[in-house]
Design a protein around this nucleic acid. Structure first.
Length: 818
RNA sequence: GCCGGGAUGGCGGAACUGGCAGACGCAGGGGACUUAAAAUCCUCCGGGUUGACGCCCGUGCCGGUUCGAGUCCGGCUCCCGGCACCA
């Protein structure tokens, strides 16, 4: 009666064997370092399947690289500030801190359950003063470098979260967290000048070949660089300059009007000069439209003439100035020139309001006429009706007009970005206090570094409505660090994305009391060699982290200026075709699965079922398959271990073939996990090896002892990163001492892996007609002779003339007939 | 509209540099063991055709390059993701 695979006791035994110091690391300049990082979780309550996937990937890599001799930094922590804690506090009458700490405790125990290999000595928690003190320090660093500033602006406001949001956190006009429609509010808020870094954030994407194309493209789109010219149109009569940004300055002779955004400062000036109730009403209405509807495609393009005119210095004409609801104030200069013939939007606008259309770029194919133009012509062509530039190809005209504008003070070349500065103020309690006080005498005064942290008071009541900080006099009232007089503290907290945009630096020296991170240690560990996390952070967290890293680099505190060398964005875990969520009722609990099948089976399945970057459709049957495989491994190792020791039968052909198979598998798995990060194929290779071992043992009366031991030991070593508990158990049962996770990754003999019999395909005219099993050492000339001798091949060659023979060594022979 | 990614058996997927399409697993059919079941093992499993050996077709669609295309090129269709009155 053979023993069954009892994962409950095996996993408990393995865990009891693992000491915390097993994965503890320090800087070792002799060893090759590897920083293996997974996005730390928000402590929302419990780990879900998405987490299991994320952290299984990271754990396999960390264990694999450790076995390969790397000094692996593999830390974990908690992105612990955030709104859900406040909402939970309101709902359940608890405190955000208590809710957060208890979630962390539970989730940490779940990590233990999964058997992940973290250096827990490096645990960071963003909501603890020993961490957020340095988040505040980072803010001061940026303030000192002119990268943090306060500005009154119309900002995104989520009514449900009762706070403002950064542009990146508004998705299609809706709040990224709660999907409420976002409105606009005119508020004075703190911003970080990420736009100063727009160019570098864009161009340095080229230095990230280890990132998925998809993510780089998304960041590229988000930054939205466009090259053009800012042309100045003076107001006729008064001469006030109206700069407009355009990428089509080659069409400037076709500009027949200007359009200002409703928020443009000149609008109020012109209105004051020529009061008109209709225009005033239009402006009021346009300004009140919230941003979610403003960028709506269905928004009707509307405008109104101001009556004022501006000079088109190129054509010498005076053209009307309009106000239009479709002009985005925050982009460019908030004013555009209207060229109906060569811009679809302008053509529609001109059509609606009877503005003149003038063709200035001619289609080389067929001649365009302004009166019959139904679609704007936006392709390349020859410039016409464009003064001295007439006759030029428009691409050349573009350069000439830009040169001309710069020479005559009519405008300048400019680069514009879609990216906006990062709004970081949040009208919420559970976050990092912005370390600033407001003094009637001195104005905005940053809290000096030696007075950090500005502690978030914990003795508060969280209730719906405004942040409790804003009502807490004991917090608000303070002294000015500069003049000592009475002053008020900033009551807003920081966007929690700041917390997570530098945590990878803190992991390098988590206990440092003197500074955010020790540069010597950070320079050792950074950059993160492999970062794993969800695609949903393609812009948000990943762009912010790149920005902060560059700032810290520029401050001379860090050698690297890109944080993540290689990025793996894992796909979602879906169930019944939809992302798992409580509201859809399709959630599968990892705890339950661990109870039913064990952590090893769960980890194995989640890596086996799909390549890491693809979405994974959850299947209950799959986990049974994974469990079945582990049982097969368990049974064969146990059977072998129980067999009498001894030489077994001699090293015959079958045993030799097994050894070759082992070496081939080690090669495959090493490449799949190491170079390709292809865990699903690595696991399938391990399954094939297991099948081969079974086949061998069935084939011979007494298996060759050494060959079988080698096969099983290597199988167990390679399985260990995926199924760490079973790996540990079986390593011991094979008679080995010490943890399997501290062993060296098995090597393989290149020659052995490439030796043995192989199958060469013989084609006639590209169609497979024969498969020859030949020794790998056999030359292709000999193989060709065998191929020609084949009856089947001969049958297909009957009556044909051989024209040529293509031979691919070790693979195929193709006999081509005429 | 622009940009990026994708489409392979009943299902998840494999085929890495142009060289055996469907590895590995799931589901299913048949069988062995068993009083029976579970577990385990063996076997079949893209379509058509054949008594059989085989032969023909087949990687979203149309065409091309090549001795040879799931893979490369051109043109489409559909799906997913990002951006979008950004001038």
């Amino acid at each position: 009666m053979s023993e069954r695979y009892d994962f409950v006791s095996i996993e408990a035994r393995a865990k009891s064997k693992w000491a915390p110091e097993m994965y503890r690391v320090s800087e070792d300049r002799q060893a090759r370092k590897f920083y293996c990082l997974e996005m730390f979780p928000y402590p929302s309550g419990a780990l879900h399947m998405g987490h299991v996937r994320n952290y299984s990937i990271g754990d396999v890599l960390a264990r694999f690289l450790r076995m390969n001799g790397y000094n692996v930094l593999h830390p974990m922590g908690w992105d612990a500030f955030g709104l859900p804690a406040e909402n939970a506090a309101i709902q359940h009458g608890t405190h955000p801190a208590r809710w957060t700490w208890s979630n962390i405790a539970h989730m940490k125990s779940q990590f233990g359950m999964l058997g992940t290999s973290y250096d827990w000595d490096r645990e960071v928690t963003t909501a603890r003063p020993d961490y957020y003190r340095w988040t505040q320090w980072l803010f001061l660093l940026m303030y000192g470098r002119g990268l943090a500033y306060r500005k009154r602006a119309a900002v995104n406001w989520c009514p449900k979260c009762a706070t403002v949001l950064a542009n990146e956190q508004v998705e299609g006009g809706l709040c990224w967290r709660c999907d409420s429609a976002v409105g606009l509010r005119e508020l004075e808020q703190w911003f970080l000048k990420i736009t100063d870094y727009a160019d570098r954030l864009l161009s340095d994407l080229d230095r990230l070949p280890g990132w998925p194309e998809r993510v780089r493209t998304m960041q590229e789109n988000w930054i939205g660089r466009s090259e053009g010219v800012e042309l100045v149109f003076p107001v006729a009569g008064t001469g006030e300059p109206i700069p407009v940004f355009t990428t089509r300055h080659d069409t400037v002779y076709g500009a027949t009007y200007l359009v200002l955004s409703p928020e443009h400062p000149l609008v109020d000036i012109l209105l004051a000069r020529h009061p008109d109730p209709e225009t005033a009403a239009f402006v009021r209405r346009a300004r009140a439209t919230d941003p979610s509807r403003r960028t709506d495609e269905d928004l009707v393009k509307e405008g109104i003439a101001t009556g004022a005119r501006a000079l088109n210095a190129f054509s010498g004409e005076e053209i009307p100035i309009w106000i239009g609801n479709y002009v985005v104030h925050a982009y460019g200069t908030g004013a555009v020139m209207g060229v109906p013939a060569h811009d679809q939007r302008d053509l529609e606008f001109a059509g609606k309001y009877g503005l003149p259309v003038r063709v200035v770029i001619q289609d080389p194919g067929h001649t365009l006429t302004a009166s019959t133009l139904r679609e704007a012509y936006v392709e390349a062509g020859t410039m016409v009706a464009s003064g001295p530039f007439t006759g030029l190809p428009n691409s050349e005209g573009k350069e000439r007009i830009a040169d001309f504008a710069e020479k005559h003070g009519l405008g300048q070349r400019r680069v514009n970005y879609r990216l906006r500065d990062w709004l970081i103020s949040r009208q919420r309690y559970w976050g990092v206090p912005i370390p600033v006080v407001y003094c009637d005498h001195c104005g905005i005064v940053p809290v000096p570094e030696d007075q950090l942290p500005v502690v978030l008071p914990l003795d508060i009541e969280v209730a719906p409505g405004p942040s409790p900080l804003a009502q807490l006099d004991a917090f608000i009232n303070t002294h000015c660090p500069s003049c000592g007089g009475a002053a008020r503290r900033e009551v807003d907290t920081m966007d929690t994305f700041i917390d997570s945009s530098w945590y990878f630096l803190r992991y390098c020296s988590p206990g440092d009391q003197e500074r955010a991170f020790d540069p010597r240690k950070a320079d050792y560990w950074m950059p993160v060699d492999q970062y794993t996390g969800g695609i949903e952070h393609a812009i948000l967290h990943l762009l912010y982290s790149r920005f902060i890293t560059k700032v810290v680099h520029d401050a001379g505190l860090l050698k690297v200026d890109e944080p993540f060398v290689r990025l793996l964005t894992q796909g979602m875990v879906v169930h019944h075709g939809a992302k798992m969520s409580k509201s859809k009722g399709n959630v599968v609990s990892p705890d339950l699965l661990v109870k039913q099948y064990g952590a090893d089976a769960l980890r194995l399945l989640i890596l086996f079922a799909a390549p890491p970057e693809k979405d994974l459709e959850w299947s209950e049957a799959g986990v049974e398959g994974a469990s079945r495989f582990l049982q097969r491994v368990f049974r064969v190792v146990t059977a072998h271990a129980e067999e009498e020791d001894g030489p077994g039968s001699s090293l015959d052909g079958a045993a030799e073939e097994l050894v070759r198979f082992v070496h081939r598998t080690v090669k495959r798995v090493s490449e799949d996990v190491g170079r390709r990060r292809s865990f699903n194929t690595a696991i399938s290779a391990l399954m094939e090896l297991t099948n081969a071992i079974y086949r061998y043992r069935d084939q011979v009366p007494r298996p060759h002892r050494a060959a079988t031991t080698e096969a099983l030991e290597k199988l167990v070593l390679m399985l260990a990163p995926f199924a760490p508990h079973l790996g540990e158990e079986l390593w011991e049962r094979l008679g080995n001492k010490g943890s399997v996770h501290l062993q060296a990754w098995p090597g393989y003999d290149q020659h052995l892996a490439a030796s043995g019999d192989l199958i060469v395909v013989v084609q006639v005219d590209g169609k497979v007609r024969e498969r020859l099993t030949v020794p790998a050492e056999l030359g292709m000339v000999e193989v060709q002779v065998l191929a020609m001798a084949s009856e089947r091949v001969q049958a297909h060659l009957a009556g044909k003339t051989i024209q040529r023979v293509v031979a691919v060594p070790g693979k195929l022979i193709n006999i081509v007939t005429s």
